[in-house]
Design a protein around this nucleic acid. Structure first.
Length: 470
RNA sequence: GGUCCCUUCGUCUAGUGGUUAGGACAUCAGGUUCUCAUCCUGAAAACACGGGUUCGACUCCCGUAGGGAUCACCA
């Protein structure tokens, strides 16, 4: 019998989803999809103090925005629910009871202050602190108000991790840990093991913060008589820009912010997937379907990767270029500048046609205000231009005047404009770099614009002549 | 500090004993009779260090250094 693949993403609702979290979710999703299995979303909301209002909705919205749909979850239900740990307290109690019955769990009699003293004492003796050296004498009954602690069985472990390879540790890392907190909620350490078993999860794909706890989890699996799922540990992602590390704040940028800023979900997916994974070929850009068929945990990098925003921009541009103008139009609804409010569809499509090959993000469209309203003059554009700076104001006025006269008689198609401009080069004796820059700036007052003749043609003769006269 | 993991151009990476160490982003130079954010061409750019093993090490072993993770009634 072939076991169905079931992977899960189990965030705790304490904030937004950043790049590292998304990558973990993406890889778990890919494993499920490529095996035609199920992808489960489970909310690990057992720490009431850290829970952030609205963050569960935010997490689900982020997954949805990226197309990482889940087959089971808090809002969609499923056969193994509920999918919020706070609603599964009875289940944990039941499993805890089996550990109490088998003598593998005990009520922790110490206060936090006492434990702190034990730690300090161990530190002053330069010995590692272990709870298991302080187990209480008798078997005190657990009355539910004390923490319930797991009675570990110290031994060496070696296990396989799909990403990290073969790992091993000695018995000194095995220690007693808390299963149920004094508020009646389980710890992550206990709850995730119970849930993964109950939900029949086959692959645990998670961040490297859990790798050092793994031997203790293996110890608990044994006590619970559960076969551990396949494990895969992801390295962390750090932020970087120009080789310099960014602050924590930048590192933890919300994935929805990227979408808000004009990044396409499929570009984010491709970029994040290749941050620590590749298929061994020289392919740089992957569609979601390609990822589903090509992804493998075994080719995930073991070392951490740094996030390079420039590369993300490039990837995003590649995806934009693959869209037809019509597809692009459908996606840029919110990104037009304010002045475009009343512009008609046909005109906007023409702008996209001209500029689509140069967009890096959809938000770049916001700089195209000059297509819709007369822009404000900005002399810095001229003074900041090496060639234009040298022209005297008189000469500039003269060139603009000549341009105006020439264009007045032009048919104003892109081809005709180009011919007119070429003639103008001869009659004025200026280089293209000077004349064309000048015209471009006087008609758009923007640092960038599509090709000059096309831009002028689209703006129309009346607008161009008006702007040259201002 | 203990434990575990990692280390190829600035960045993401290919590479599993014999390669001119390949690609991509970024950078720089040139081109596309203008800007440039597309596109084309080219350049510069890496095996952390030290020992072994071997006819031969980026590749295997040991050590050093550096980085990461963890050592909670957080996940």
């Amino acid at each position: 019998m072939i076991t169905e693949v079931r992977t899960r993403f189990a965030p705790s609702p304490t904030g937004f989803l950043h790049v590292g979290g998304i990558r973990t979710a993406l890889f778990a999703w890919l494993v499920a999809r490529q095996n035609e299995g199920q992808f489960v979303l489970r909310l690990e909301d057992t720490d009431r103090a850290r829970e952030v209002e609205g963050s569960a909705q935010h997490l689900m919205k982020s997954l949805q925005a990226l197309g990482l749909n889940y087959d089971e979850g808090p809002d969609v239900g499923g056969a193994f629910g509920p999918y919020k740990q706070s609603e599964r307290l009875d289940i944990y109690k039941k499993w805890a009871q089996t550990l109490i019955d088998s003598g593998r769990a005990y009520a922790d009699p110490y206060s936090r202050e006492q434990l702190q003293k034990f730690r300090e004492q161990a530190q002053s003796e330069k010995k590692p602190f272990l709870y298991r050296n302080h187990r209480p004498e008798g078997p005190p009954e657990w009355d539910g108000t004390q923490p319930l602690r797991f009675k570990s069985d110290p031994k060496a472990y070696s296990w396989h991790d799909e990403v990290m390879g073969d790992l091993s540790t000695g018995p000194e890392v095995i220690d007693d840990f808390i299963l149920i907190k004094s508020d009646g909620f389980p710890t992550y350490n206990f709850a995730h093991i119970v849930d993964d078993a109950e939900m029949q999860i086959t692959h645990i794909i998670r961040g490297q913060e859990f790798i050092s706890s793994q031997p203790n989890y293996l110890n608990l699996y044994e006590a619970l008589d559960i076969k551990p799922p396949i494990l895969a540990t992801m390295p962390h992602i750090m932020a970087a820009s120009g080789g310099k590390k960014l602050s924590k704040r930048d590192n933890a940028k919300d994935i929805l912010d990227y979408i808000e800023n004009g990044y396409l979900p499929e570009a984010l997916i491709s970029f994040i997937a290749t941050l620590g994974w590749n298929d061994g070929t020289e392919q740089e850009i992957f569609t979601v379907n390609e990822l589903i068929s090509k992804f493998s945990l075994g080719r995930v990098q073991r070392s951490g990767a740094q996030f390079d925003e420039k590369r993300l921009e490039w990837v995003n541009g590649q995806f934009i270029r693959q869209l037809s103008t019509h597809e692009l139009y459908e996606k840029v609804g919110n990104y037009w500048p304010e002045a475009a409010k009343d512009a008609d569809e046909d005109y906007k499509m023409q702008i996209l046609e001209l500029s689509k090959d140069r967009l890096k993000t959809l938000a770049d469209l916001r700089q195209f205000g000059y297509f819709f309203a007369d822009p404000e003059q900005n002399m810095e554009l001229i003074e900041g231009n090496k060639q234009l700076r040298k022209l005297s104001p008189d000469r500039r006025a003269e060139l603009i005047e000549q341009t105006k006269n020439a264009l007045e008689n032009s048919e104003f198609t892109p081809v005709a404009i180009q011919e007119t401009l070429n003639q103008l080069l001869e009659t004025t004796g200026e280089k293209p770099g000077v004349l064309f820059s000048l015209i471009r700036i006087y008609t758009t007052w923007a640092p960038f614009s599509p090709q000059l003749n096309d831009t002028l043609a689209l703006l129309g003769k009346a607008t161009v002549l008006r702007r040259l006269s201002l």
